[in-house]
Amino acid sequence: MRVSHYFEFEDRITGGIAESVAHQRTMLDRVGVEYTTEPTLDADVLHCNLMGPRSVWYAKRARDRGVPVVAHTHVTAEDFGDSFRFTNALAVPLKPYLGRAYGLADALVCPSEYNRGVIADYTDAPTTVISNGVDREKLDGFESLEAEYRERYDLEPPTVFLVGHVIKRKGLETFVNLARELPETDFAWFGPLDLSLKGRETTRLIEESPENCTFTGYIDDVRGAFAAGDVFLFPTHEENEGIALLEAMTAGKAVVVRDIETFDWLEDGEDCLKVSATGTGGRMDADDEIAAFADALRRLRDPDLRERLGANASTRSEAFSLDAIAERYRSLYERLT
C-alpha cells in the first residue's frame, strides 16, 4: 500500500495542524505504511490534511480515477474565527467552501467526537474519529530544563502556563485578566508572537497585560514550557482537540479547562478542573467567569491536589499515545482499498 500523504501549505503553516501531520507520519512509519508527501494519483489512497485549492483539485481527479480520498477535518469555520487578522471575515464563506471540499472525501478523519458533530453540519461524507495523538517521546527529559527556563523568564512556582500560538480564540482575554486578578502568581504563554498577524484587540491585550504575565514568543525547545509551568490553563472557547493539552497531561501537569463540549471526555476533579462557561440563566458575565477560573487556580496552590490531578492526567493521556493510535490509520486505508 502506498499513500499520498499531502499537507498543502506545509512550508507556511505551524501549530496544531503541522504537529498533527508530523504525528501521522510518525505513526505511518511505525506501522510500515509507505507514503509520499507529494500530491499524486499514483497511489492507493490520497490523504489530504488541508483542503486548500490544490488539494481539492487532486481530490476531484482522484475520485474520477477511482483513488480513495481521505480528508482531515482540522479546519472548521467555528474554530477559524478569532485566530489571526481577517479570519473572522473569512470564516463566513469558509463553511460552504469546506462543505463542498470535505464532501469530496470517501472518508473524513475527525480529531475528536466534538469535531465529528460539527462536521455533520458540513457534509454527509463518512467520518471516523482518530485523535491527533501525543508524541510522548518528544517530552522525554523535560524535567531537566526546569531551572533554565524558570530563570530565563523569571518564573516562580506555581506558574500558570499555556503553550501554542497566542490567539484570542484560545482564551487570551481570560488568561490576561486572570493574571491581573492574581498578581502574586506568574503567568506564562509559550508560543509564537507575531503581532503583525494579530488583530487590534489581540495586540491590545498583549501590550497591556500586567507585569506577572509573560509572553515568551517562539521557544526552540517546547520541553522548556512544560518544565517551567506547573498548572496548564486552557480557557479556549473553541477547540477541535488540543495537542498542547495532551502534552501537558502527558507531562503530569494539573490542567484547568473551560467546560466546553470538546472536553466532555475529561472528568472534573479527577484528571482536570473544569470551569463552567455558563452561570445563572444560561450565561456567565466576564467578572463571574474570572472569579470562577481564579478560584480553580487558587485551589491548585495545593501541591497535593496538583500532584493527584497531574498523575491522573498522565495516566489518562496514555490512550492518546502514537503507538496506541497508529494502527487505526492502516485499518482505515485498508478498508478503503
Score class of each variant (00 low, 15 high):
Arg63Trp: 02
Leu155Glu: 02
Asp271Leu: 03
Thr76Tyr: 08
Asp186Leu: 01
Phe175Ile: 08
Thr76Ile: 08
Asp44Gly: 11
Gly164Thr: 13
Val33Glu: 11
Lys168Phe: 10
Val257Ala: 01
Leu145Gly: 06
Phe232Pro: 03
Ser4Glu: 09
Tyr329Leu: 04
Cys213Ala: 15
Glu143His: 14
Gly281Gln: 09
Pro183Ile: 00
Ser276Val: 05
Ala248His: 00
Leu172His: 05
His5Phe: 12
Ala18Lys: 15
Arg169Ile: 14
Ala71Leu: 13
Val69Pro: 01
Leu309Gly: 09
Ala319Gly: 10
Leu46His: 05
Phe84Gln: 09
Gly279Glu: 01
His72Asn: 15
Ala43Gly: 02
Ala326Tyr: 05
Ile17Thr: 14
Asn88Cys: 04
Ala18Asn: 14
Ala18Met: 13
Ala292Gln: 03
Thr128Gln: 13
Asp194Leu: 10
His165Lys: 14
Ala179Tyr: 01
Gly32Lys: 13
Leu50Thr: 06
Thr174Gly: 05
Phe226Trp: 13
Glu261Gly: 10
Leu246Gln: 04
Ser112Phe: 07
Leu178Asn: 01
Ser144Arg: 13
Leu178Cys: 07
Lys253Gly: 01
Ile119Trp: 02
Gly141Lys: 10
Arg335Ile: 01
Cys48Gln: 13
Val275Lys: 06
Arg258Ala: 14
Glu151Ser: 12
Ala225Ile: 01
Ile17Leu: 15
Phe142Gln: 06
Glu181Gly: 01
Asp221Thr: 14
Lys60Arg: 15
Ala188Gln: 00
Leu297Met: 13
Asp79Trp: 07
Glu8Arg: 12
Gly99Pro: 07
Ala125Cys: 07
Tyr114Met: 06
Phe263Asn: 03
Arg136Leu: 09
Asn312Asp: 06
Leu90Thr: 03
Ala71Ser: 14
Asn132Met: 06
Glu184Asn: 04
His74Leu: 12
His74Glu: 11
Thr127Met: 15
Val69Ala: 06
Glu208Phe: 03
His5Lys: 06
Leu305Ser: 13
Trp265Ser: 14
Tyr6Gln: 13
Ile167Gly: 03
Leu50His: 12
Pro39Arg: 13
Asp285Glu: 06
Met1His: 15
Lys60His: 11
